[in-house]
Design a protein around this nucleic acid. Structure first.
Lengths: 108, 108
DNA sequence: GATATATTCAACTATATGGTTGTCAAAGAA
DNA sequence: TTCTTTGACAACCATATAGTTGAATATATC
């Protein structure tokens, strides 16, 4: 196998592959929230939502701090940036392809 | 549920969550390849690799054209761009946070 | 026509995922 | 102290995923 990447990328993309988890990230752009309020708009059990938070946490996409009995969750963008950088390589590649195509047309 | 996104994103991120499939995409930046040559460096059965290609295809990350008995696979960046755009919202959000933080320091 | 090559299909296995429910523990409020 | 709230843990279920093997199909080549 050629695989030469941080295995963390697996978990990041895996975490992003679920609409409920992406919805949570979207909610968190409004700021820190506890798990209950993250769970509320998702139509599922509290424990279901709690599991999703754990997945996001293990992927490094969110971090939590515990204040008494409430767990406050916030976005931790490092993992998002990492994923973005990985994708950027390919979009850059894509742009090069487009540029090359343009150049071909220009030559004619 | 609040989910207001193309369900395709699920499949795109899911497809990217596997190192073998990401390796395939990397190989494909060198240009079109048939499934055999994509399978070769991955340590798995041909059919295993073939399945990965199908996952990438269904996610819209690659396209294939059949020339006789060989299937030529190439990157189709539209889905990559889509994923990139989704992530960009959050990295932009992150940058704004950073800018706000900087502004706070500047004011002092 | 016979053989080799590139690929899919079908069936199967093992493990991971997304979800549930029930029980438990800790922290706050009465 | 008792009750309520916030959350975790454990067990379970259904489905999806990653992989395998064996057989079938279509295209090249001899």
């Amino acid at each position: 196998m050629v695989v030469k990447e941080p295995p963390a990328l697996d978990r990041v993309f895996q975490a992003l592959a679920n609409p409920s988890r992406r919805a949570m990230l979207r909610m968190l752009t409004d700021g820190e929230q506890n798990i209950s309020s993250l769970a509320e708009p998702l139509q599922m059990s509290f424990e279901g939502a709690s599991k999703h938070v754990r997945v996001l946490e293990q992927a490094g996409l969110v971090a939590r701090r515990v204040r008494g009995r409430v767990h406050l969750v916030r976005i931790q963008p490092k993992a998002l940036v990492q994923a973005n950088e990985w994708l950027e390589f390919y979009t850059r590649f894509w742009n090069q392809q487009m540029d090359a195509l343009e150049a071909m047309f220009d030559e004619e």
